[in-house]
Design a binder for these strands. Structure first.
Length: 871
RNA sequence: GGGCGCGUAGCUCAGUGGGAGAGCACCCGCCUUACAAGCGGGAGGUCGCUGGUUCGAAACCAGCCGCGCUCACCA
């Protein structure tokens, strides 16, 4: 028999266990097995990233799901990998270059990309090693990277198909431009923040032909090609069709009527800058206005004149000053707080910019993505999130997918010398010859991420993996990337797999969304708050299991998860509690050999814990299915700690440590079984300590490959549960009395127990005596205190002295008040005709029962009070 | 501005139509040989406010107050 140290030491266990699991190949899924598949693809972390608390939560959930499915007999695949993270990675390497005084342009495209690859090999993917420390049972033999050969082929394949289907197009549009990253961004890569600006009203033109417009971006007036008003606005009706001069430019522009203008806002007249504002662009389209680009890709004014060469934020006040000088500033509102778009990568203010870019026509794809949820092929958990999903897919703009970066999948389109454009599919040779060149841009990182559920399984080849493991079973991720990733996987998955039956084309059956990890006060973790916790730090100090348990324990579906070091310490304590429970059990011969004894050979205590176990198995299973990990943890925590440790082990101690092997044997077997099952149930959440303990307890190979428990209704035993409940009440009441009377726990007290037979618990008298520390009455026994515990059981104690009557009276008085309140509440209900008429019968019966109990309680307390000597 | 969500014990949160709960923190007593990372006992809440529905509301509805998240082309 293994001897275990007296405290659980994660560092002695984790690395060794993980190596064994790997060695045994438990994580490697078999595409050719007969088992039903269960697939999770990991939300691909950035290659630049290291493991943070968000991953710890996300991975704990996925590992728990995967481990349980594996135990349930599924061919469970958890597929890991990483994202090349276009902008983020390029930024990292560019910063390195900058430290050497270089820019990527000094290296040129080819050498720069080589350099990024080298960075990736040397310093990227730190997270992979950290996932091992968390205990993740990912199948590393299937690990993928979005820039690897297979995935690049998948990208090219789907691009070509979408292009040929007219779902990818190139067009000049207003896009979000980051002047620092020098690339286009999609709508969701822009974060709106409330910034302080200034709303200035500027007079265009002179005299009665003048018109006042309002703007927060005065510098864009250099590119104005019209002023727009609402067609029904009487103030300006007479001006429609006339021309007005744009100050500082000498340019005369038309005044046009457009429904888009809100007459209520500002002056009701809008300056129109088609090249630098999305709305204005559309107005320009409708009215055939020219687009004047007045700013370059760095945000520097290019319009010739006094402002040329100024940065946009220098030009703005300069232009306002010039206008003021001319007396054209009619009004200024400052500060004027309004939402301004910022680059989600570098926080630079985004500049709307007219630019030639590639787009995905999202209409039909988004429709399909919405329908898959609408018709139930994909379920979103928790359901409240579904509306957000619909809001987005039903109102999606076309997706700008080209990025002016070097790190990423290059757009597979070649341009010819005479304006030809050829999209090159996989296996096709790009056109050669004078003047042909490939598009310079790369694809949005999220483009390849959108293929993740099938590109990782070998698509576009028809591989065994793809056949076995697609669609994936559940996608686990934070609600923050519902739009970035989930909706796009839906669009591309349904599109790429459209040859399959509709229910099997979806990328996943269920989307299980969790929240964000926050600090103990619910605040976002951020470097500026200084409240960031490194999960590796917790793993070092409290162990991976404690870290995981803390995550799972806070994981209510869709809601944020506050964590703190104290809670992690609590989780560590729980692991240690389990450790010591098993240690104790092994010390006293608990085992899992042979079948369980028949119920008739078991004591009521054994039948009680087995009955409880069945309930816990059933409930834990249901909560797992509902992604209610916090409830799974809560159930198991209390079953393990309260039922098993505090009661069952204590109740079993006398027989286990006694000298009657025949009596001890069934208990050893039952205890072994209960712990065996408990460890299995806990294994998905806390894999290391459970495997260490389970193998020590059972001698089995690993709990990882043990069967998942199923409830056995034969062991349900309400009678045993009632019996133990009474026993517990007697023990608890005696303990209360002892505490109130200041009797030390080591102090033996003689007592007579009356009414145990009537209460059906006379078998348990020795147990009650042992747990309540009551001796047999001896010579000269004098009952100085009498406790009425239930309406049947009373305990007469010889406290070897007068009891503290005041304390006893105080306790009884308090109990009496509670009972009185309870009784009064019940009586009120039972005298209510409406209640009697309308409430369900079982509710009424329950209230009657409660009243009877309360009244018996009252009678008992009154008797006890009357029996108290005068103080 | 639109949408969503939250307000329950000191803190963080469960509970969503019939007896107010958990963890941590707190108070009292214990080194009772599995565990002091522990054991036993205890205190603490007009469930944000107001009204409504109901025999019955922490839960359902309306309004209000406070907070958070999210989307957004009012220049």
């Amino acid at each position: 028999m293994t001897t275990l140290p007296s405290a659980y030491q994660p560092s002695q266990v984790e690395e060794r266990r993980y190596a064994q699991w790997l060695e045994a190949g438990y994580f490697t899924a078999d595409a050719h097995s007969d088992k039903p598949p269960h697939t999770i693809v990991i939300p691909l972390p950035n290659v630049t990233g290291s493991l943070h608390m968000g991953h710890a939560l996300d991975h704990t959930i996925q590992d728990a799901i995967t481990r349980r499915r594996r135990m349930q007999g599924y061919e469970a695949l958890w597929l890991p990998g990483m994202d090349h993270a276009g902008i983020a990675t390029q930024n990292v390497v560019e910063r390195q270059l900058a430290a050497e005084g270089l820019s990527r342009h000094d290296l040129g495209r080819e050498r720069f990309v080589e350099r990024v690859w080298r960075w990736k090999e040397e310093s990227g993917g730190m997270i992979t090693g950290q996932m091992r420390r968390l205990g993740n049972s990912v199948d590393r033999s299937r690990e993928r990277f979005t820039m690897d050969e297979g995935l690049s082929l998948a990208v090219q394949t789907i691009f070509k198909r979408l292009y040929d289907d007219g779902l990818i197009y190139r067009a000049e549009r207003i896009i979000n431009w980051c002047p620092r990253c020098m690339t286009a961004l999609s709508d969701i890569e822009v974060e709106h923040q409330d910034d302080e600006g200034e709303l200035v009203s500027i007079r265009y033109g002179d005299g009665d032909r003048s018109i006042v417009v309002a703007t927060t971006r005065a510098e864009t007036m250099l590119g104005d090609t019209a002023v727009a008003v609402h067609p029904d606005d009487d103030r300006y009706r007479h001006l429609i069709g006339t021309e007005v001069e744009v100050p500082l430019t000498g340019r005369r522009v038309p005044i046009v009527a457009d429904d888009h203008v809100d007459p209520e806002f500002g002056t009701g007249a809008v300056k129109v800058t088609p090249a630098h504002d999305p709305n204005d662009f559309e107005i320009g389209q409708r009215h055939g206005l020219p687009s004047l680009t007045i700013m370059d890709e760095r945000g520097v004014i290019t319009a010739s004149g006094p402002f040329e060469g100024l940065d946009r934020f220098e030009a703005r006040p300069a232009i306002v000053a010039a206008l003021r000088e001319q007396g054209r500033i009619v009004a200024e509102r400052r500060p004027y707080v309004h939402a301004v778009g910022h680059c989600s990568r570098c926080d630079t203010v985004v500049e709307p910019r007219l630019s030639l870019q590639w787009f995905v026509r999202t209409g039909p794809l988004a429709k399909a993505a919405g329908d898959a949820v609408r018709d139930g092929r994909v379920r979103i958990e928790p359901p409240e999130m579904t509306k957000r999903y619909f809001d987005w897919v039903d109102n999606m703009h076309d997706w700008c997918i080209s990025r002016q970066l070097w790190w990423g999948h290059r757009i597979p389109v070649w341009y010819g010398p005479d304006g030809q454009m050829v999209c090159v599919g996989p296996g096709e040779e790009p056109p050669t010859g004078e003047g042909w060149r490939q598009d310079e841009d790369v694809l949005d990182t999220w483009f390849s991420s959108a293929l993740w559920p099938f590109s990782t399984l070998g698509w576009p080849e028809d591989t065994p993996d793809l056949r076995k493991f697609y669609p994936t079973s559940v996608l686990v991720t934070g609600y923050d990337i519902l739009f970035f990733w989930v909706a796009r996987m839906m669009m591309f998955g349904l599109y790429a797999m459209k040859d399959r039956a509709p229910e099997d084309a979806v990328p996943f059956r269920v989307v299980a969304l969790h929240g964000m990890v926050r600090d103990e006060h619910g605040k976002k973790m951020s470097k500026s708050f200084g409240n960031v916790i490194d999960p590796m730090d917790w793993i070092e100090r409290y162990g991976a299991d404690a870290t995981r348990f803390t995550m799972a324990r806070g994981a209510n579906p869709g809601s944020d998860v506050p964590v703190s070091e104290e809670w992690c310490a609590g989780s560590r304590n729980f692991c240690n509690k389990l450790w010591n429970a098993v240690r104790f059990a092994l010390l006293h011969g608990a085992h899992t050999n042979g079948p369980l004894p028949e119920p008739s050979q078991c004591t009521a205590v054994d039948r009680w814990i087995l009955s409880r176990l069945q309930q816990v198995i059933t409930e834990v299973d249901a909560q797992f299915e509902a992604f209610e990990f916090a409830k799974v943890c809560d159930l198991l925590y209390h079953f393990a700690w309260d039922d098993v440790c505090d009661w069952y082990l204590e109740l079993s101690k006398p027989v286990l440590t006694g000298d009657d092997p025949a009596a001890a044997e069934p208990v050893r077997r039952v205890l072994g079984h209960v712990l065996d099952q408990l460890l299995r149930l806990l294994h998905p959440i806390i894999p290391f300590v459970t495997d260490e303990l389970w193998t020590a307890l059972t001698g089995g190979e690993s709990v990882m490959i043990a069967d998942w428990p199923t409830a056995d209704p034969r062991w349900q035993d309400p009678a045993a549960e009632a019996e133990v409940a009474t026993l517990q009440k007697v023990v608890t009441e005696v303990r209360r009395f002892r505490a109130d009377q200041g009797l030390r726990s080591g102090q033996r007290v003689a007592a007579q127990l009356h009414g145990l037979a009537e209460a059906g618990i006379s078998d348990h008298e020795p147990l009650i005596r042992s747990l309540a520390r009551l001796d047999q009455p001896g010579e000269g026994f004098t009952a100085t205190g009498t406790l009425a515990v239930t309406d049947q059981v009373t305990v007469a104690l010889d406290t070897r002295g007068a009891i503290d009557v005041a304390a006893e009276r105080a306790r009884l008085t308090k109990d009496r008040a509670a009972a009185e309140k309870e009784a009064a509440g019940c009586r009120a209900k039972l005298s209510n005709e409406g209640f009697l008429a309308k409430a369900p019968e079982e509710v009424v019966a329950k209230v009657r029962q409660r009243l009877a109990t309360a009244e018996a309680e009252l009678a008992r307390i009154d008797a006890a009070l009357a029996a108290l000597p005068e103080s």
